[in-house]
Amino acid sequence: MRASSATRELLWPLVFMASAGYLAWYTPRLIIWWGNASDAMINRFPVAGAPEFLALAAFVLSLIMGPLTIRPTVQEGTNQTVFDRLSLFMGRVTMLLIVSLVLVMFYEVIARYVFEAPTLWANELSLWMAGAIFLFSGLYAMQQRSHIRIYLLYDMMPRNVQRLCDTFSVSLIVGFAFIMLWGSYNEARDKFLRWETFGTAFDPPIPATIKPLLIVFICLVALQAVVNLICDWNKDKEVHSVVDEAEIEEYVQEMGEKLKKKG
C-alpha cells in the first residue's frame, strides 16, 4: 500500500518532467501557432501539432494534480496551503532532477574515460538541469523556512518585534522580486520569443528557458515568503538553539512514534 502510494506521488512529477522536457525543445512550434513568431523562427520550425498540444495539456495537468496528490512528510509539516503544496510538488520534481543530473554526469564520465567517446550534449544538459534545480529548490527551501537565518538577536526579541522583523524581511524579498520583474521582463520575453539558444553544437535553448524561469521563480519565492508570513503570524515565539545528540535522538524517537501512529 505504501509503495503504491509513493508511486502515485512520483507519477505527476515524472509527467511534469517529461512534458516540460518536450516543451523545452518544441515550444517554438507553439509560439508560431500563437502568432508571435519571427520570420527566422517560422523558417526553422513547423507549426504546433497534436504532440505539442498533448505535452502542453500534460504539463498543465501535472501542475494541477501534482500538488493535490502530494503527501507531506512528518518533517515537512501538515498544515499547508494550496501554494505550499505547489512548492512541495516542485521539491519532488527537484529530487528527480537531481537523480537525472547524476545519471547524465555518470554517463558522460563512462563515455569519456572508459570508451573515449565524449558526448556533445552532457555538459550543457547538466548546466541546464542544474539551473532548474537551483530555481526549484529555492522555492522549496523558502516553503520549508530552510534558508540561512541568524537568530542571535531575533530570539531575544518579543514576539511582536519578531513579527515586525519578519514583515520587514518579507518586504525586502517582495521588493527585490518586483525590481527583478521590472528590470528583466522585456529581456526575458525577447529571449523567449526569439528562442535564443546556447550557440554550441548541442545548442540547447538555455537562455530562452532559464531567463524566464528565473523571473517566474523569483516571484514565486516572494509569494511563498508572503504565505509563510501569514501562516506563521499567530504562532508562539520559538527559541532556536544548537541541537545536541540527545535532542537528535529524542527527535528521531518522536518521529518514529508519529509514523507508527500513521501506519
Rank of each mutant, 00 (worst) to 15 (best):
E249K: 11
H240R: 12
L30P: 01
L54V: 15
L152C: 05
P205E: 03
T73S: 15
E250P: 00
R159P: 03
A117Y: 09
S4V: 05
A246Q: 14
F59R: 02
S19A: 14
R112P: 05
V221Q: 01
V221R: 00
A132K: 00
P158G: 13
L152A: 09
Y185N: 08
T197Y: 09
V102P: 03
A201M: 14
M90I: 03
F115S: 13
V227N: 05
A225W: 00
T197L: 09
Y140F: 15
F178G: 00
N234V: 07
F106C: 09
I173R: 03
E124I: 02
P46K: 09
G66P: 00
G66F: 00
Y151V: 03
L10N: 11
L125Y: 04
I173Y: 00
L164V: 08
A55F: 05
L10S: 10
A222F: 06
V82G: 05
T200C: 07
I173S: 01
R8K: 14
D166F: 01
D203K: 11
I42G: 10
M65K: 13
R194N: 13
E76Y: 06
N160C: 03
V227E: 04
E196S: 15
V221D: 00
F16E: 03
E124H: 10
C165D: 11
F16H: 12
S62Y: 07
L193R: 04
W33N: 13
E257A: 14
E116G: 07
Y113S: 10
L56E: 03
A3N: 09
L54Y: 12
R71G: 05
W25Q: 10
I210F: 12
A122P: 01
V174I: 13
M142I: 04
S184Y: 12
A37K: 06
G66V: 02
N123Y: 15
D84P: 04
L97T: 01
S169K: 05
A37Q: 08
Y113L: 08
M1N: 06
I133S: 04
W195R: 06
T209K: 01
K237G: 14
N123E: 08
L223I: 11
S171M: 15
S137D: 07
L214Y: 13
P46S: 11
V252A: 10
G183C: 04
T119A: 07
L152T: 07
L63V: 05
L61G: 09
L97F: 02
R85P: 02
T167N: 10
Y140S: 03
A50P: 01
S5C: 12
V239Q: 10
Q80I: 00
T81L: 07
T167D: 08
M142A: 01
R2I: 06
W25E: 08
